[in-house]
Simulated scan of single mutants.
Amino acid sequence: IKGVSVNGNITVGGGATYHAVASNDAVQSACGVLVECVAQIGDTQVRNRGTIGGSLAHADPAADLPALALALGSTITVKGPGGERTINADDMFVEMLTTAIEPNEIITSVTFPTLGAGEGAAYEKMRQPASRYAIVGVAAYVKLGGDGNVAEARVAVTGAGPKATRQSDTESAVVGSNGDDAAIAAAADKAGEDMDYLGDIHASEEYRRAMVKVYTKRALAKAIARARG
């Protein structure tokens, strides 16, 4: 349950620490954005104690991993008295601090994809300086077609609302485009339009709404650049 392996996909035990993932060279080669994301979580103490499964099960609205799990199309394997089952990331996050995991189930593993030629992903966030939680965080994944245009895209936002959410309007806007600056800006402008926002001492709802578009633009631009190699 604490292991990390790369064999076609990346399988991370529910009890594996952030550090175990961030320091794994095979994960870095197979899906660098996963290392990039977990390396930004908390501080050294947190990364050596906190776990991948714990983050996803807790579903903190400002956590980094839920957005990345959504953008990468990850799957979460849970086990309880009734046996084992798999939850798609899209079905995992129900509302604030609430997931599709039953009270008598635990996360045994999380599966992330490996990224190949023509694929790129990125995670960009505005962090709270003390906790390093995301005030706004955006994860983006793209796959280019044979013509060089964007064939697939998945974009997810965390930190801004009560749960991590996919940005379907942004995804639809960028798919089919050539992924240039204008296309990225147009797609990013659609981000967060249908979200419920949170406001607190760190950032107002209005500020988070504005920053969702800024960080979506950054994440998409980096993901597309990586996909182009």
Rank of each mutant, 00 (worst) to 15 (best):
K2S: 14
N7Y: 04
N7D: 11
G8S: 07
I10G: 04
V12A: 02
V12T: 05
G14K: 03
G14D: 03
A16P: 02
A16Y: 03
H19A: 11
V21T: 06
Q28T: 13
Q28F: 14
A30D: 02
G32T: 12
G32W: 11
G32K: 13
V33W: 01
V35I: 09
E36K: 04
C37Y: 01
A39R: 00
A39L: 03
I41W: 00
I41H: 01
D43W: 14
T44M: 15
R49F: 03
G53T: 08
G53M: 05
G54Q: 09
L56C: 11
A62S: 08
A63F: 09
P66T: 12
P66H: 12
L68R: 06
L68P: 01
L70M: 11
A71Q: 04
S74I: 12
K79D: 11
P81W: 03
G83W: 12
E84W: 03
E84M: 03
I87D: 09
I87T: 09
D90F: 07
D90S: 05
D91F: 09
E95T: 13
T99H: 02
T99E: 14
I101E: 04
E105A: 11
I107N: 01
T108V: 15
V110I: 15
F112T: 01
T114G: 08
G116A: 05
G120D: 00
Y123C: 10
Y123P: 05
K125R: 07
Q128K: 13
S131Y: 09
R132V: 14
I135T: 11
G137K: 07
A139D: 08
A139Y: 12
A140E: 00
V142I: 10
K143M: 09
L144A: 03
L144S: 05
G145A: 07
G146Q: 12
A151W: 05
R154E: 02
R154H: 06
G161Y: 04
Q167Y: 10
S168E: 13
D169R: 11
T170D: 10
E171L: 08
V174E: 01
G176I: 01
G176S: 02
D180H: 08
D180V: 12
D181C: 02
I184V: 14
I184L: 05
A185R: 09
A185Y: 04
A187S: 13
A188Y: 00
D189I: 11
K190R: 15
A191Y: 03
G192R: 00
D196S: 06
I201F: 02
E205R: 05
Y207W: 11
V214G: 03
T216V: 06
T216Q: 04
R218K: 15
A219C: 13
L220E: 02
L220P: 06
A221S: 09
K222F: 10
